[in-house]
Design a protein around this nucleic acid. Sequence first.
DNA 1: GTCGCTATGTACGATAACGTACTTCATACT
DNA 2: AGTATGAAGTACGTTATCGTACATAGCGAC
Lengths: 241, 241
Amino acid sequence: MSSSTDFTQRNHVLMSTRPEAQSFIAERLETRAIAAGDMLFDHGDPIHHAIFPQSGVISMLSHSEGGKSVEQVSIGNEGFLGFTYLMGGSSVPARAMVQVPGHASWLSITHLDEAMQRFQCVRAALLRYSKALIIQLMETIACNGLHSAEQRVASWLLLADRRMQGHTFVLTQDGLGRALGLRRATVSNICSDLQRAAAITYSRGHLSVTDRNRLRAHSCSCHDRIEAGMMIPGVQDNLLS
Amino acid sequence: MSSSTDFTQRNHVLMSTRPEAQSFIAERLETRAIAAGDMLFDHGDPIHHAIFPQSGVISMLSHSEGGKSVEQVSIGNEGFLGFTYLMGGSSVPARAMVQVPGHASWLSITHLDEAMQRFQCVRAALLRYSKALIIQLMETIACNGLHSAEQRVASWLLLADRRMQGHTFVLTQDGLGRALGLRRATVSNICSDLQRAAAITYSRGHLSVTDRNRLRAHSCSCHDRIEAGMMIPGVQDNLLS
DNA sequence: GTCGCTATGTACGATAACGTACTTCATACT
DNA sequence: AGTATGAAGTACGTTATCGTACATAGCGAC
């Protein structure tokens, strides 16, 4: 099995479809590396492809008015980009930017349509993620309003860790700050604290979660709810195995 | 035409379906008044019905941990409750509470399924709103992070005004504060300012928007984007006519 | 090894919104 | 008319986070 094939087997949406559908789609996927800062979609772009992350984290950002922007939602290997297409949309609702580098697979809308027509499970899988996305969005609104910067950083890192299957990942404090709408200085203090608490380890843009439980102690319950919403019956998460 | 029939003709989702579908559904709707504070769904409830607001505003709230709660999204006659059912969900993701009283129509899931099966336009209409909902959620996250309390209050009121078709509506500062996660004292100051600016008029729980343009000057562009996302081709908004 | 670039640490005052408490006022009820 | 009740106005100190600025330190290029 080639390493390219490996990369097409980590996306939970694709993994939750039936084997026939998986191989139909796998033959039509184009998998590439995605680098930090890459803009995969801009606000208003026509949807020609769906993008299935295999690793890394992609942020959907508000279109900055006056330089500032905020992450509206982050997407990893549990989801895909292009969800509004399912709902009759023809353009992308926000800018999508790579926050943590990794790999992702492109599938043209034509092929996606064909796959949905042939295999009912494909549309079901895409809709199932859309539900998780709505839950994630709703939880994020509550979380941003109720919880401290530290709790939100901890939650974001827990999610990133899961998406990266526990591996060290590339992320600067600056990037994390932009994702969460926080000052870099604020992130710096928080990360120091978390490292001192032996929850994470980082250095010059390389970060890893060393103790999920300790990190969870600094986060809020929102994270658990978001992760619960992402759980797909039948797809085991082999992070811990 | 009875007044009860009038109430079933103000929901944009239903109005955007074909006439045959509309009359099929209308016969099976149960329309009632909804009072401020009514809880229509609680977090985790099984979805037995979809609810189509005809007037008023319903808030979906985070399940309070420690008394505090925040509105995640508000729903009026442009949408419906029960959207996760479309995506394979069987339970409600958050508490739904009436914020501004009005009228709403219940439709059992059985009838909804039947309507979707008979009329393709029904599923399409429901999905179209789901897209608007996702956009609204994404905009809300950006808005909460970037804009002032005053701008958010103004946006909320503009949306409520549209949902109430320009009529005076029932809403206390306390309720508005809870919806937006603000202190009542903060809301009080903001409302005074807005009234002084001749944008709104209010007294003891009765509020009306007297000048949408002036109010818009105090809001942020998020409101325009949310409203744009709600526009359904083919359904004219007769607020201004 | 040295230099330069980028990531990170740290400090200052500024400010928007907070929690709480008390006052004032409009309407509905007796 | 008098009074109870709930809505709205106002004031105090408090706090989390901001904006900005400057200092330190790891790593690659030469």
